[in-house]
Design a protein around this nucleic acid. Sequence first.
DNA 1: GAGTGGTCTAGACCACCCC
DNA 2: GGGTGGTCTAGACCACTCT
Lengths: 271, 271
Amino acid sequence: MSKSTVAPIHPAGVGAGNSAGVANSADAAAPPIGPSYRPLYDQIKILLTESLIAGEWKPGDVIPSEFELAARYRVSQGTVRKAIDALAAENILIRRQGKGTFVATDTEPNIQYRFLRIIANSGEKHHPTTRFIDVKRGKASSEIAQVLGIKSGVPVTAIHRVLVFAGTPLILDEIVLASALCPGLTLAKIEESKGSIYSFFETTYGLRMIRAEERLRAVAADKFAARELEVDMGAPLLSVERIAFTYGDKPVEWRRGLCLTQGYSYYNELA
Amino acid sequence: MSKSTVAPIHPAGVGAGNSAGVANSADAAAPPIGPSYRPLYDQIKILLTESLIAGEWKPGDVIPSEFELAARYRVSQGTVRKAIDALAAENILIRRQGKGTFVATDTEPNIQYRFLRIIANSGEKHHPTTRFIDVKRGKASSEIAQVLGIKSGVPVTAIHRVLVFAGTPLILDEIVLASALCPGLTLAKIEESKGSIYSFFETTYGLRMIRAEERLRAVAADKFAARELEVDMGAPLLSVERIAFTYGDKPVEWRRGLCLTQGYSYYNELA
DNA sequence: GAGTGGTCTAGACCACCCC
DNA sequence: GGGTGGTCTAGACCACTCT
């Protein structure tokens, strides 16, 4: 491609249409675009993300090779590589040497409970089992509506369940999504699905979580939690509130886990 | 340098001494070295880390430019770049365009409380103030000894303090280090120092934390915690246990914070 | 052997900072 | 203007996987 400047990239094979190119150089009379500058690999990253949002490649799929993408976007392989590197670092794509680059998925049995940070103090890995309590429909409270980016009063679906570790009920979960995102969701459907809830969302509704934010507090067990977790009312529980996001950082799930931390803890690494 | 193989690198300017080079190719009769292979940039990263451990560059210092390092290690600038990228991603080095690459430090007032994840629910940033309770010396329990990689019974120093957010005592901290790492530590010395504890450790003892592991639980306030945090005994508190590591992933600090999560929470991002 | 990702190099040019 | 990091390219070769 032309050197001496970062040229706008041509988004795809057919058509010579320009993307929202950057044009940050020798062009005459460029307006004061001081702050806006996007490296080429960043633009490629955005285009790849758009293809993921559009469903051009689905979780588990191989995406085109680095050389193919380089040809499509008219950039060098190294530039595509850097864009893919960034997406791989965010666990959105997975590189496999000799095979290709894949869209990350929660449907593989090896990586279950992707965001679950609760581990035994002994360090052992326990694979919890799930007991579902119910699935209810309701309207979004203003708090839920705000974090999910919907209007309050919009129909939502709530799942209640208990995660059991080594025979002990440890986590009481409430999981809330806009009903529009999970039409026809019933207790039976979830119970008959194999694998994690996120695997179920992905295969059933094409809903893939790419990241999450959590807020943790210590709370006292209320009556319901005390019954489900088999502890006294007022016992200290770890409250883990989560907002999960799909492609494009769109919030789609709110959940709160109330967790008994006897012999278990929430593990986190800081850097 | 010679192509056709990844050659061992020459560690420094003077002397042609070989490092523990890799030699993973056309050499005859190479033993079954299947699993061992280190890319060049990984070796460079290790050499840079060794220089950091040795104190060749101290927190806040500029390290040599990419070109200088490339010349020193006899590799291309791009390879040095990749090694530095990795260390920058771990917050061990900081790149500043136009100025150079610096060793990260906790002594800059802008990034205080580097590992503190407690934020107000409102999202506001509160800068806590500190009230120190005491500094005590004792012997390492077997649990502490194990996580700090020392023998049990070895002298340790413990700091107790309370972090106050917006007038409210929120976190009761106990901080434990091997006394050998912080000789002559007294309450007065800490109190007269400006900035965070980590800033103090860094400037006074040359001790720089590069990462930490935390384990969170919900616990009931004991008598001492209840008094210091001005809550009732039995109130639910968030217990945050931390092990902090210096260069070379050596554990040097154990701490436990007991945190009142009224209006505040522990924030975490998952990817 | 062909195809994919992974490493390494060399060189050009850009953006930023400071003298 | 000269130095530093940041981007982009082009090409060579290696490691891995599948056929």
